[in-house]
């Protein structure tokens, strides 16, 4: 799609941020499209049978092109490559028809992937999620310095990979909080 309007990242830059935080790396991801999916009443079966993985409670599922993570008892978020699925809602409506309510969420969120072993030391300064005990794929809603965030544990603790989704408008404050916290434990 040739666009008249140039996109900016949530931090106001033309390219996503990649930053070292002591032993860890923070990678801003703008290459993922997001949409919430909520099965219409009585249509849960159709949604479950569709070609998009439905996550279990507090879990995420990685796939190609569709990944998903749990939001609430009756709603989950779907992730797909932005380049191929920018209009993700249209793609999903093509799959679900009227069996689900689908809402584009791509730009509602800023996504920071935190990478590197020993991430639990950094996470301990940010939120109350026990990332050591959490199973791989664990997904939850949490709060970081007053900011509501989704947290997904992407890899075992030995590797260390955590995704944080925070409100797009608060991207700067969230980055600030992560940077300050990393400074105390890095």
């Amino acid at each position: 799609m040739d666009k008249l309007l140039k996109p900016l990242t949530a931090l106001g830059a033309s390219a996503p941020l990649r930053k070292s935080l002591g032993p860890w790396e923070l990678v801003e991801r703008v290459d993922v499209a997001l949409a919430s999916v909520a099965p219409r009443r009585g249509r849960e079966g159709e949604v479950a049978r569709a070609d998009v993985p439905v996550p279990a409670v507090a879990a995420s599922v990685q796939g190609d092109p569709w990944s998903s993570f749990w939001l609430t008892p009756d709603m989950f978020m779907v992730e797909a490559p932005f380049a191929s699925h920018e209009d993700i809602r249209a793609h999903l409506l093509g799959i679900y028809g009227d069996a689900a309510s689908v809402t584009e969420q791509t730009d509602a969120w800023v996504r920071f992937d935190l990478l590197g072993p020993g991430l639990e030391r950094l996470m301990a300064k940010l939120c109350n999620v026990d990332v050591v005990a959490a199973p791989e794929g664990y997904a939850t809603r949490t709060v970081i310095e007053h900011m509501g965030c989704y947290l997904i544990k992407r890899a075992p603790s030995s590797e260390g990979a955590v995704t944080l989704y925070g409100a797009r408008s608060m991207a700067g404050s969230l980055l600030h909080a992560i940077t300050l916290a990393a400074g105390t434990v890095a």
Partner: peptide
């Protein structure tokens, strides 16, 4: 709870 309604905030999604 019996109504077929799904809601989500999209405040941040749209400029």
């Amino acid at each position: 709870p019996d109504m077929d309604v799904q809601i989500i905030s999209t405040t941040e999604a749209w400029a």
